[in-house]
């Protein structure tokens, strides 16, 4: 069969679609688990907002604060998990050697995986929002839609970069790498102010919060949704997020390539399970 004669970058872009299509097919084939995870997300999100609702008389601001936290975290954790677990998943399926033998750049591999993760995460968060809104009243009257969208998209870049860096763990540590990425995700949940302001954390945890991109995404989302702030006043959020994205993605790919070299030198690029 003939290979495409498109220019190199176009071929790479087309190849990145292979990951989008494959992940979409996997999502459809594992629909039962998708449903189960979604029901779990709905149940845990509703549990959190009902805790807010139980606090006093006018709980609408608290419910909105918690609702934003739960929705943003559902999105960010989905992006982080699908990117950081891409290697662990392929090891488990036994396809890792075939994907790494393919004549594509690692950037293409990451781009395809990230693109699917962002679109899938957004759709899932929107579905979760629709269900939440059916159960509790979320006051979105002051929401700045453009601002919120920009915060989420710019914030996604940083999370993609962190996810790529975390993906090296299953590459280097064949037995325990997947567990390590799960722990990173848990720590991000703890320190990033998902359900509470980071000011309540001990000092050393606040330092971790300062370097977590999730902290800035959550802050930005609350300011655009609750206070209706526009892009002009979000420089202190957007700048660190943009810098994190611009630095972490190329850095993540570079670190990943070093880990790939190590895995090929030590024979760790094999299936397991």
């Amino acid at each position: 069969m003939g290979m495409s004669n498109s220019p190199g970058f176009l071929q790479e872009a087309k190849a990145s679609y292979a990951f989008v299509e494959r992940n979409l097919n996997l999502t459809k084939r594992y629909w039962g688990w998708e449903l189960a995870f979604f029901v779990y997300s709905v149940a845990s999100s509703l549990s959190v907002v009902y805790i807010g609702k139980a606090q006093g008389t006018d709980t609408r601001p608290l419910v909105l604060y918690l609702g934003i936290g739960t929705l943003v975290w559902a999105y960010l954790s989905s992006v982080f998990d699908s990117i950081s677990q891409m290697i662990a998943w392929e090891r488990w399926e036994g396809t890792i050697e075939y994907t790494f033998m393919a004549p594509i750049s690692r950037m293409t591999h990451m781009l395809g995986t990230s693109l699917f993760s962002v679109v899938y995460g957004l759709l899932r968060a929107i579905a979760l929002f629709v269900v939440l809104a059916a159960f509790v009243q979320l006051d979105l009257s002051r929401m700045n839609v453009v601002g919120a969208l920009v915060v989420v998209l710019v914030g996604s870049l940083g999370f993609i970069g962190v996810g790529i860096m975390a993906a090296i763990l299953p590459l280097m540590f064949t037995e325990r790498g997947a567990e390590m990425t799960f722990m990173i995700s848990s720590i991000l949940l703890l320190v990033s102010g998902v359900y509470y302001p980071i000011s309540v954390l001990p000092g050393w945890m606040q330092l971790l919060a300062k370097i977590s991109p999730a902290t800035y995404v959550l802050d930005g989302m609350r300011r655009t949704v609750i206070q209706g702030q526009g892009l002009a006043s979000l420089g202190d959020v957007l700048l660190p997020l943009a810098v994190t994205g611009v630095v972490s993605i190329p850095l993540g790919v570079w670190v990943f390539l070093q880990a790939e070299h190590y895995a090929k030198r030590t024979g760790r690029l094999k299936r397991s399970g």
Binding site: M1, G2, M3, S4, S6, Q11, K14, A15, Y17, A18, E21, R22, N25, Y98, T99, A102, P103, I104
Partner: peptide
């Protein structure tokens, strides 16, 4: 589905 994934990686239209 598996073969579509493989062929896309190798640049087959």
């Amino acid at each position: 589905e598996n073969l579509m994934y493989a062929t896309r990686l190798y640049g087959v239209p």
